[in-house]
Simulated scan of single mutants.
Amino acid sequence: MGFMDDVIDRLCEPGSYESVYHSPKRHAPMPSVEVLTEVVSRLRAVLFPGYFGHSEVEAESMRYHIGTNLDKIRRLLTDQINRGKCFVCVAENRDCTKCEDEAEETCRAFIESLPELRRLLVTDVMAAYEGDPAAVGPGETIFCYPSILAVTNYRIANRLHTLGVPLIPRIITEMAHSATGIDIHPGATIGEHFFIDHGTGTVIGETCVIGRKVRLYQGVTLGAKSFPKGDDGKLIKGIPRHPVVEDGVVVYSGATILGRVTIGKDAVIGGNVWLTRDVPAGTRVLQTPAGEE
Rank of each mutant, 00 (worst) to 15 (best):
E293D: 15
V20Q: 11
P24R: 04
Q80D: 07
K237T: 11
V165K: 00
V273T: 10
L43S: 06
T78H: 06
F48N: 11
E13C: 13
C96G: 12
I172D: 05
G139Y: 02
A59C: 02
G84Q: 15
V245M: 05
R241D: 00
K213P: 00
A59M: 05
G199S: 01
G282L: 10
R10I: 09
G53C: 13
I236F: 01
G211C: 03
E60L: 14
C96H: 10
V151K: 08
K213S: 15
A28D: 08
V39I: 15
Q80V: 09
S16D: 08
T97C: 08
F143S: 10
S32I: 05
S32C: 05
C99Q: 09
F195H: 01
K98T: 15
D95Q: 06
V57K: 02
I257W: 09
F87L: 12
G181A: 11
V122C: 09
D183Y: 08
A188W: 11
D247I: 03
H185Y: 07
P228G: 03
R63L: 12
L258R: 09
K225I: 13
F52W: 10
V273C: 12
C208H: 01
D232H: 03
Y51L: 07
V125P: 00
Y252C: 11
V250Y: 03
E292V: 08
E92D: 15
I263V: 14
V57P: 00
M62G: 06
E116V: 03
P29S: 12
L70P: 03
K229C: 07
L47G: 04
V33P: 05
S55T: 06
S32H: 04
G181S: 10
R212A: 05
A128E: 01
H22F: 15
V250G: 01
L70I: 09
D278K: 14
